[in-house]
Design a protein around this nucleic acid. Sequence first.
DNA 1: ACCTGAACACCGTTCAAGT
DNA 2: ACCTGAACACCGTTCAAGT
Lengths: 224, 224
Amino acid sequence: MRRGGPLTCLLRAAVAFADGRGIEALSMRNLAQELGVVPMALYKHVAGKEQLLEGMVDVVVGEIDSPVGAGDWKAAVRQRILSARQALLRHPWASRVMESRTRPTPAVLDYLNSLIGMFRSGGGLSADLAHHVMHALGSRVWGFTPDLFPAPPDSTPGAREDALPETAAKYPYIVEIATARPHHSATTVGQGCDDQFEFEFALDLLLDGCERLHHQGWTSAGRS
Amino acid sequence: MRRGGPLTCLLRAAVAFADGRGIEALSMRNLAQELGVVPMALYKHVAGKEQLLEGMVDVVVGEIDSPVGAGDWKAAVRQRILSARQALLRHPWASRVMESRTRPTPAVLDYLNSLIGMFRSGGGLSADLAHHVMHALGSRVWGFTPDLFPAPPDSTPGAREDALPETAAKYPYIVEIATARPHHSATTVGQGCDDQFEFEFALDLLLDGCERLHHQGWTSAGRS
DNA sequence: ACCTGAACACCGTTCAAGT
DNA sequence: ACCTGAACACCGTTCAAGT
């Protein structure tokens, strides 16, 4: 394993800092203090905080597995995206930072390019369809679904049951959905949603729909 | 039309400020200055900036049309979500603020509850399926797709063509997708994607897939 | 009791003063 | 030439001093 230059070292330290103390605690000043250097010393290696965050995203994107060659294209795409999901789950701050970035880095372009390649040369999809499918997948290509809410209405153990009667009256459908839910696995009963299940459900819904359109010879021009 | 109290007035001023000068320019100090009051005066009406942003989101959510009664459920859901999209498009900052919020407000719960109701009593979907479909739609229920990138790699008119040759070599699939795209309408040729088309493509992919699962009597327990 | 200005504890970044 | 500390222009919020 290569050591990497001082920039790589700095970026990895920043990633570790964000993993450990949260992205909101990551300031140029705090990071410098953690590294035992004066704040302005960081500016020798990065132009500013924007570039620091950019580099941190690249570190995470670099953790995504390379594409697998064998198997059918849909399974390959699925596996790759689920690998991206694992990388993003290891760094919970990364998804929000990625969403706030404005310009893609080379590492990001590499990943997207290879993913599109799986649709094009792997699956034989038209450039037209591949384009729209990438859009439809949206941030799911990064393994995350920007959820309706990061936290449930009130996750305090006691307050949940207390608030339920009045909530049930005002929001019957929400309560019904939140309570009468069949168990997917024993580990997630009663404690929120199985995020992995929800992610794969949506991913498969999109990939299956895409495959169906492909077999039908769909083009955007011939859309009703 | 009701006038609303001083809080409503403050929130509407904040929304107008964010619309006009951008959400990044919205600070307690700047907003107070705009209103001609001292910064601390705002704290008479809101507990802090978090609550201000919460109230601003509620103003935008309040602009979403009420559900339509007639027609089939899929068209009704589609129309409602596209109405949410229009509201969010009027306030470009709103989607990012919504994503950063942690707890839903009553207005948000009202919207979600009525949307689920359209699946349940309108479409006859099981609570099980309705649950997963809501997750699959994700932030699309708010009318926005967290895009892969807010801005293309380089949108400067001149630099685009200049960078193309080297980009084409490294990212052939991205370039292919970005350039060889059939025109959906004359107004969008050559200038980025037709966001509305991409949004409806993905929305229909998800709703059609959902309808198919419903007709098949899908349950999460019987999943392979 | 109410209002409000100064102050506090931050932030990213500039820049001039030191070596 | 290089490094670095103070300073600048912010931020949200506290709090004591004024009325």
